[in-house]
């Protein structure tokens, strides 16, 4: 029984995806706290902003590994999300000097907040689904090998 590179890619993706799920959960919790008035938006943004780029990079890293392993289907499934990430970061609030997406002065705007909330939930769903997909991919590539 060999241990193919594609199996390895799925295993890394699984681990990476677990982290992504954590990130998504953390986002949703933070926004919920903001909504229910438990937290100061400055603190929230300060804790969320440093996590945005690592999340994006981790997601891209997973896909690079897929690319190397030649798992085209997995890459294609992830492309929309990569595209969305790039678009999202390009359209971040003007004049932010640090990394990140969230500006404490407009995060409390209920449009922005509900959008961020929705984004968090949808991403959580996507990561969960892809978690099971990677699990399936890992098993099937192990069996195939």
């Amino acid at each position: 029984m060999g241990f193919s590179f594609s199996a390895f890619s799925y295993i890394t993706a699984l681990i990476g995806d677990a982290f992504l799920i954590f990130f998504a959960i953390f986002h949703t919790i933070s926004f919920d706290e903001l909504k229910t008035d438990y937290k100061n938006p400055i603190d929230s943004c300060n804790s969320l902003n440093p996590l945005v780029l690592p999340e994006y990079l981790l997601h891209i890293l997973i896909n690079i590994i897929f690319l190397i392993a030649g798992e085209w289907l997995s890459v294609c499934l992830n492309l929309p999300l990569i595209g969305y990430h790039i678009w999202r970061y390009k359209n971040r609030p003007q004049g932010m000097s640090g990394p990140g997406l969230y500006d404490p002065t407009n995060i409390m705007n209920s449009d922005t907040l509900s959008k961020a909330m929705k984004e968090g939930w949808i991403k959580l769903g996507v990561y969960l689904l892809s978690f099971f997909y990677y699990l399936y991919g890992m098993i099937s590539s192990l069996i195939a090998a």
Partner: peptide, 17 residues
Amino acid sequence: LSIHTFHGNFFVRSTDL
């Protein structure tokens, strides 16, 4: 009803504050 957007000079600390 709920408040959606604020206008003026201030910092919005929570949804209605």
